[in-house]
């Protein structure tokens, strides 16, 4: 869907490129997270995709079409764009902010009105209450929701999100992440998501691209990157607790074994099959048990998860203290 080929940006007057021969492919409907230390070129890469920054080398192909040949204005209307500072228009109501792209696209008024209400509901805000409010009357979390809704308004196939939840308190951030994941399950989008938070990258990304000094260091699934860091930089970047982080990516269902009776387990020692391996481990440690019964949504016994099963999962991921 989005293909970056040897993408390069050398800002005038600078010795080294901000983005250096970056090549990666984001399949349609997937979320690609760009992550790396501050100044590694994440924002520049993102802005080249919607041509707020013109590349000095390489090319960007969007759905088979070279972006550099396209009218930037038309291109941008096919891409939702969310930035950390949100940039809501202070003189327009929440409804008018969200209606921006539909208006630019010339939709009829009733369709715009319906779309605004649909999106406000989607991001968990009551249209009747919020449609006519102004940005300054909202909390930071609400503003960012409106920012996301505004970017989704024209139903663009691509979403570009530059640290969208970066300036929000941790609890609200968690909630927005979950909501956005839920939204992505209902409306499939190809997303390029920038963050500098490893946990957010693991949570949001189908694929993670790790950048350093404008270069791609590793590109893979979250599990792939946690299990097999390409080098010391990645290993350090994802953190010494990467083994534990992996446990967050796996559900109990994936590590359980068939039910073998397990008569020794006490009555309360059970866990739902859609819990994470980390939650199972935590429960086992808390109950001082070597294993747990796995039950489905209806409480039926479907298998057994054991400490040794989890240990096998993270074998090879362990990090020795430096």
């Amino acid at each position: 869907m989005i293909l970056l080929e040897s993408l390069t940006k050398l800002f005038p007057g600078q010795a080294t490129p901000a983005v250096d021969r970056l090549s990666l492919e984001v399949p349609a409907g997937q979320t690609c997270v760009l992550i790396g230390p501050s100044g590694c070129g994440k924002t520049t890469t993102m802005k080249m995709i919607n041509r707020l920054v013109e590349p000095t080398g390489g090319r960007i192909v969007l759905a088979g079409e070279d972006v550099t040949g396209m009218d930037p204005v038309a291109l941008r209307r096919r891409m939702g764009y969310v930035i950390q500072q949100i940039g809501l228009f202070p003189h327009l109501t929440i409804g008018e902010n969200i209606a921006t792209v539909p208006r630019l696209l010339g939709w009829p008024a009733p369709r715009i009105g319906a779309r605004v209400d649909e999106l406000l509901t989607l991001v968990g805000m009551d249209p009747a209450i919020h449609r006519a409010r102004y940005p300054r009357e909202l909390s930071g979390g609400q503003r960012q929701r409106v920012g996301v809704a505004r970017a989704l308004a024209g139903d663009p196939p691509v979403m570009l999100m530059d640290e969208p939840f970066g300036a929000i308190d941790p609890i609200t951030r968690l909630r927005l992440q979950n909501e956005f994941l839920r939204i992505l399950r209902t409306i499939r989008k190809t997303v390029v998501f920038v963050t500098h938070d490893v946990d957010e990258a693991i949570k949001m990304g189908d694929r993670i691209a790790i950048l350093r000094d404008g270069r791609l260091v590793q590109y893979g699934t979250p599990d792939d990157i946690l299990a097999h860091p390409a080098n010391g930089f990645v290993e350090e970047f994802v953190g010494a607790d990467r083994a534990l982080k992996r446990l967050d990516l796996v559900t109990v269902r994936e590590v359980m074994q068939a039910d073998s009776g397990a008569p020794t387990l006490p009555a309360g020692a059970s866990i739902r099959h859609d819990a994470t391996a980390k939650e199972a481990l935590s429960a086992m440690l808390a109950m001082d048990q070597e294993g747990l019964r796995v039950v489905d949504a209806n409480g039926r016994l479907v298998g057994l998860v054991s400490l040794s099963g989890i240990r096998r999962l993270i074998a090879g991921t362990t990090t020795l203290p430096a």
Partner: peptide, 8 residues
């Protein structure tokens, strides 16, 4: 930036 990024 948002306005330009949205295609104005």
């Amino acid at each position: 930036e948002s306005a330009v990024g949205m295609g104005m």
